[in-house]
Design a protein around this nucleic acid. Sequence first.
RNA 1: UCCUUAGUAGCUCAGUCGGUUAGAGCGGCGGACUGUUAAUCCGUAGGUCGUAGGUUCAAGUCCUACCUGAGGAGCCA
Length: 479
Amino acid sequence: MKRTEIASVLKSGQVGAEITVKGWVRTRRGSKNVNFIALNDGSTIHNLQVVAEAELFGEDLIKNINTGTALGVTGTLVASAGSGQAVELNARTIEVIGLADPEKYPIQPKRHTLEFLREMAHLRPRTATFSAIFRIRHAMVYAIHSFFHERGFYNVHTPIITSSDAEGAGEMFRVTVLPAENAPLNEEGKVDFSQDFFGKPANLTVSGQLEGELFAMALAKIYTFGPTFRAENSNTSRHLAEFWMIEPEVAFSDLNDNMDLAEDFLKYLINYALDHCMDDLQFLSNRLTEEEKNKPVEQRSMELISKLRFVAENDFVRLPYSQAIEILINSKPNKKGKFQYPVTGYGTDLQSEHERYLVEQEFKKPVILTNYPKEIKAFYMRLDDNGKTVAAMDVLFPQIGEIIGGSQREERIEVLEARMDEMNIPKHEMEWYLDTRRFGGCPHAGFGLGFERLMLFVTGMGNIRDVIPFARTPKNCEF
RNA sequence: UCCUUAGUAGCUCAGUCGGUUAGAGCGGCGGACUGUUAAUCCGUAGGUCGUAGGUUCAAGUCCUACCUGAGGAGCCA
């Protein structure tokens, strides 16, 4: 008989129907006469309770049904005789499809720490928490493409291997076929990359933005969504060496349009999760509440679903850097010397503690900081008329910090070249980029959204390593 | 990379001031139980105390280095 997914059994299963389900055992309990098996097939967070009367099944079969076992069950769907579930499956035949030795299978029907499960990244999707996270992850991927498609954007696959080392977005991973030992040397005694695969040094991309801009100058509205690699030695709960980034780029668009797009985008994604992932969100919310039960009330975070609704329903604060500095200078923690890095005046680079103060204390909602001093931002950001600031924007979220970084781009070639000279960006390697300004250049803007940071926010998880299937971080490249 | 902190049974942890044979709960295994919800009850096995040195009559406990995890910082998405 064809397998019915548990999600559809629980949603629209007819009592009295004969069905077959296949899935993995979460727990089994029982007495001499009857066994109860919680079966999950990944289609939903919820399990289907299978009832196995002892007289129908031999002890040898029952003994093989342990946590983790893959099982096929055929039987009759009935109204549950116990409380806790509306329906259950009265088993007529049970097929053990794959054994899971209970002495060796590491996932137990009890709470495990996230750190332990992280070491078991190959098995952790079988837990309720991680299956919920990865169902939501899928929904978010789908929603991202929907959002842009509905608005007439085109998806562009920008290259993963690049030879451009001028992007300045971080340390890069070198891509080479040269031997690690005794690599060929040139006359200067340095590695001779002319003998390498591409005839010059190549790296994994740290951003698709520059290539994205090229396509925005033709298709007008584009977005990239691809893997991104940074070889920074970052050991934090919000950094990965390999992560996924969404980078829209829009022609004939300025900083305000860019902020509107970013805000609409984030709210669309959050609403999509609320509309399509409620069961999983509810589970994660309960889990979080349970986990924070022992914390003092004032340290607990806002309930997950309320938090998502709150962000989706309220306007983000838009604040120029100069005004942020004013607020911070006059803030209580600054006056009382509570900041580790006191805010003294214009030009100070904002530290995490300052961003968190603005988002979590002052405004208590997402904040878009704009118009930073040019000294602390990238060369391609458009210089404001004051000559001091650039048309940059950072979207800051509670707990996560920077979730989006973007800007209106410098379209005036003289200004752009002057900025590149100031910042020692080698122009001769960037002629293709400068061509966009030479031929039919126009005002344009875009941003980068860290996909896993979005996932942190939507799922309420605290560590970015738990919202990507297999995390790559310094000293960790398992699986 | 820096600061803080942790590493004891499969998992989560306790282990006092350095002192005899290393402790619990959960999980596993054996048994009991007329429908359970992380079932319950009885019994039982399970340990290179992160690694390497050092101090000491004696080290899970003190010291040093290293490894790994976590929290924070920097870098950023």
